[in-house]
Amino acid sequence: MKKMRVLSILVKNNAGTLTRVAGLFARRGYNIDTLTVSATKDHRFSKITLTAELDDIMLGQLMSQTAKLQEVVSIEELFDHNSVLREILLVKVAVTHECRSKLIEIATVYKGVVVDLSRESMIIELTGKPQKIDAFISVIDNFDIINFCRTGVTAVQR
């Protein structure tokens, strides 16, 4: 059964490495949902964190295919129970005088922060597990969302 997987890939910090990993996913017919790349404490390596909907067979295939790339040092699956997963959301919502405080109230429950406010709109920043971001977006769904952007998952094993 397909489910959302979080993969953490330690790669050599060389030009073209991201293309190799992303290209492999594309070539083998797997869709990447989110992807983040960041530095590690050792500048020779970078960390790619990505999420994709995969079943067990697909996961095994993808992990062994990715591990074959010369630039990949290691690949592992991260789980909720042994890792801290975080994502940042920026959402811009059209607001009127009447609904503004209602929206701030909801954002506060989710520990969101209003980072920009104008007469017509508001930008809220929210950090949390992907599920929390999903939940917040669904709760404010009846507001007039102009657009939003999510960073994708970044994660560290406990």
Partner: peptide, 10 residues
């Protein structure tokens, strides 16, 4: 090659 396991046939 580990990636040949369960690729085409389980």
């Amino acid at each position: 090659d580990a990636s040949e396991m369960n690729k085409n046939v389980i």
